[in-house]
Nucleic acid binder design. Structure first.
Length: 272
DNA sequence: CTATCCACCTGGCGGC
DNA sequence: TGCCGCCAGGTGGATA
C-alpha cells in the first residue's frame, strides 16, 4: 500500500508522540514478515521517543538508550494513533505501543508483509535492508549524474528501475507510473537509453509528483488512512494509474504487465 | 555479479 | 447469494 507519500504522511502523524514514553507493548500476532522478537517488551518498555524519520518506505523511530525502532508497512500496513479509552481492537491489529499519555500506536496489516525491528542504532544501521537502500527519492543528493552512473549500462526498463529501492528509495508501483507520465517518458525505455537531460527531467517529476501526493495526504485506495483516520486525496489526481481504457488529451491509456506488475501509461504522450 | 520470477498473506471485486 | 479466479500500494530469496 504505502509508498513514500503515505509513509511520510504517517511519520508526520507520529511526530506528535515525540517526547512521550512507551510504557506498555501488546503483541497480538507474532508472525509478520519477520517474527516479532520475544524481547520486545523488555527492550521497548520505558523508552522515550526522541525523533521520528523516514528513509524510503522505512519508518525510523529514535528512542532513548540509543535504540532505533523500525517499522515497515509492507503492502497493506497502516498505523493509527488513538486515545486509549476509545480504542476498539480491529481485525489485523497486530501490535500496539502504549505511551505515558494514554495514546496507542496501532499497527494493522491484513497481508502481514510489514514488520517491526528494533535494536541499538548502530546495529540497525548495519541491517541489510538499510544498507542496500539507494538515495531517498526526496533527498537533494538525488542528481542526474548519480542516476546516470547507476543505469547508463542497464537494459532494464525505466519503470522497473524506479521500483528498485537499491537505486532510489521510496517510489512504488503507483507513483512510478504517475512520475513517468509526468516526465513524458515511456515505462519501456531502457536505462541505457536515457540521457542526462532525460534524467534531469525525470528527477523533476519524481519530486513534483511525490510532493503533490504528500500535500494531499497520500493516496487512499482500499483502506489507507493516516494516523488520525483521515483519508488521503491524491488518488483523485492520478493521471494514468488504474485508468486503462480512459483517454487523456484524446489519447488512450494502456495497461501493460512488467515484471509481473501493472504499468499504466499513454503511448502517444510518453514517447521517449 | 545481473535479470527474472515467485512466494509470502488476506481481502475485494467481477463474472458466472 | 455463492463460489472462483484474479488482482492488489512491497520485498527478498531462489533460480538461471
Amino acid at each position: 500500500m504505502p509508498e513514500l507519500p503515505e509513509v511520510e504522511t504517517s511519520i508526520r502523524g507520529l511526530s506528535q508522540l515525540i517526547n512521550t514514553t512507551i510504557i506498555k507493548i501488546e503483541v497480538h500476532t507474532v508472525k509478520l514478515r519477520y517474527p516479532i522478537p520475544k524481547n520486545i517488551y523488555k527492550i521497548l518498555k520505558g523508552t522515550t521517543i526522541i525523533d521520528i524519520k523516514r528513509i524510503g518506505k522505512y519508518i525510523l523511530i529514535y528512542l532513548k538508550k540509543n535504540l532505533l525502532l523500525v517499522i515497515h508497512l509492507g503492502m497493506s500496513g497502516r498505523l493509527r494513533i488513538l486515545k486509549k479509552n476509545i480504542y476498539k481492537k480491529e481485525k489485523h491489529d497486530h501490535f500496539v505501543l502504549i505511551n505515558d499519555k494514554d495514546y496507542l500506536i496501532i499497527f494493522n496489516d491484513p497481508r502481514k508483509f510489514g514488520f517491526i525491528d528494533f535494536s541499538a542504532i548502530n546495529l540497525i544501521l548495519k541491517r541489510d535492508y538499510i544498507l542496500k537502500l539507494g538515495i531517498d527519492a526526496l533527498d537533494s543528493k538525488l542528481k542526474p549524474s548519480y542516476l546516470f552512473s547507476k543505469i547508463s549500462k542497464s537494459v532494464v526498463p525505466i519503470k522497473q528501475i524506479l521500483l528498485d529501492q537499491k537505486i532510489i528509495a521510496g517510489i512504488g508501483n503507483i507513483y512510478a507510473s504517475e512520475i513517468l507520465y509526468d516526465a513524458k517518458i515511456s515505462p519501456l525505455v531502457r536505462g541505457k537509453d536515457l540521457t542526462i537531460e532525460d534524467l534531469q527531467l525525470l528527477i523533476g517529476s519524481i519530486r513534483k509528483i511525490l510532493k503533490k501526493a504528500i500535500n494531499a495526504g497520500g493516496s487512499t485506495l482500499k483502506d489507507y488512512v493516516s494516523t488520525d483516520g483521515t483519508v488521503g486525496n491524491f488518488q483523485y489526481s492520478f493521471k494514468v494509474y488504474n485508468k486503462s481504457g480512459e483517454k487523456i488529451m484524446g489519447h488512450p491509456i494502456k495497461k501493460i504487465i512488467q515484471y509481473g506488475r501493472s504499468t499504466f501509461y499513454c503511448p502517444a504522450i510518453q514517447k521517449k
